[in-house]
């Protein structure tokens, strides 16, 4: 289909979709890969920091261990404050050009993109995970300790599964934000959806039509992601019904033996 300056809005939209759909698709792909990888790595960073920042330290802890912990904690706090407190678009510039200048490392824009989204998400998730951990009832820790679990076992098998379940909505939030915010990576030339849209729009001087399509593509991606995560949340809640086995429900059942001390 040919279009010219007199073509209608719909004709342009159809024209652009027909001629540029591979561009949109590639852009969406890059956006999804970067935001998904970034969210997962960022979540990992967040869990790690959340665990470190909730290690129980009291007056009975060895003095050296306490000192190390304090230093680590301060470094982590600096990381969180710096990355939460500056715009990702600025971080992208500083990191992409910075590592090249200071260390002579030339990252591809794609790797740089994943790196930036990861550490940015990590800074937010660190506090979310910490909140998730400290919101777990103290009784859960005590019960785990009372059956002889160490702090790491308590975290791994009891507390983290509950905390992660509780912070899934926040994680899904982060993921959606990342899908949208990877668009700022176009400043360092990452070929994500926004970047691709810009070239499609520039080629035809059709900004409204192109970006309306871009809008829809973003919306489809974010909507799908929230649905998937919502489903996951439901799954993690466990089955709503359970089977009662046999008929041993009577507490009056005779008690015969106890303990093999």
């Amino acid at each position: 289909m040919a279009v010219d300056a007199n073509s209608s809005f719909f004709q342009w939209v159809i024209y652009i979709i027909q001629n540029y759909w591979p561009l949109f698709l590639r852009g969406a792909e890059v956006t999804l890969i970067i935001s998904l990888t970034g969210t997962i790595i960022g979540f990992g960073i967040g869990i790690l920091i959340g665990i470190i920042r909730t290690v129980p330290i009291d007056n009975n802890t060895h003095i050296l261990k306490r000192a190390i912990y304090k230093v680590v904690n301060i470094l982590l706090l600096i990381y969180i404050e710096v990355f939460r407190g500056t715009p990702m678009i600025v971080q992208a510039m500083v990191i992409f050009y910075g590592v090249a200048m200071v260390w002579g490392i030339h990252l591809t824009t794609f790797v740089a993109g994943i790196f930036i989204v990861s550490i940015n998400t990590g800074a937010y998730m660190a506090e979310i995970v910490r909140g998730g951990i400290i919101s777990i009832d103290k009784g859960q820790f005590e019960a785990a300790h009372a059956i002889g679990m160490t702090h790491s076992q308590t975290m791994a098998f009891i507390v983290l599964p509950q905390a992660i379940r509780n912070i899934l909505p926040a994680l899904s939030n982060e993921f959606v934000i990342n899908i949208k915010d990877t668009s700022v990576l176009n400043v360092i030339g990452v070929t994500e959806l926004f970047f691709q849209s810009k070239s499609a729009a520039g080629n035809n001087y059709r900004y409204f039509e192109v970006f309306l399509i871009t809008c829809l593509v973003y919306l489809v991606m974010t909507f799908t992601v929230t649905r998937i995560l919502r489903y996951l949340e439901k799954r993690l809640e466990g089955p709503e019904v359970y089977t009662i086995h046999g008929s041993q429900t009577v507490p009056e059942a005779e008690i015969k033996i106890v303990g093999r001390q």
């Binding site: 859960q140 019960a143 009372a146 002889g148 098998f157 009891i158 509950q162 379940r165």
Partner: peptide, 28 residues
Amino acid sequence: AVYRAKMGMVFQQFNLFSNLSVLENCTV
């Protein structure tokens, strides 16, 4: 931890592990 495993404890607020089933509570 070794000592605590030898002293069982039952709490006023039960404190069952809420991410685990009844059986898993007793096996973990």
